[in-house]
């Protein structure tokens, strides 16, 4: 029943989207043994936070864009959406400061 504001298409029903997962995980740059822990974290470790969560949804039945969504896992409220590179939490904090 959620409405997700796709940065390219505008507000759309969540049925058009596919849930992808945690948006905070970035692929480690190199594959040598110095960063085993970083790889372990990227491939396997996921937090299950109560409250704000940055996650990815793909607009599968629309523009196929990966959308970053800042969602409250407790209330399901969607606080902000953006492109995958956007840091929504920082952006939200910035907004709060401006208010």
């Amino acid at each position: 029943m959620l409405i997700i504001n796709c940065p390219l298409c505008g507000p759309r029903d969540h049925a058009e989207f596919t849930y992808v997962g945690d948006a905070t995980k970035n692929r480690p740059k190199n594959g040598d043994s110095s960063n085993d822990n970083a790889w372990y974290d990227f491939v396997y470790l996921r937090d299950n936070p109560k409250g704000l969560h940055e996650e990815l949804w793909q607009h599968s039945f629309g523009c196929r864009c990966f959308v970053k969504v800042l969602r409250n896992t407790l209330t399901h409220e969607i606080i902000a959406t953006g492109m995958p590179k956007d840091n929504l939490i920082l952006k939200e904090k910035g907004l709060e400061l401006n208010v």
């Binding site: 990815l56 793909q58 196929r64 990966f66 995958p84």
Partner: peptide, 13 residues
Amino acid sequence: LSHMEYYLQVQWP
């Protein structure tokens, strides 16, 4: 397709 789109859009834009 989704797998490749993920890497192109999120990891290697």
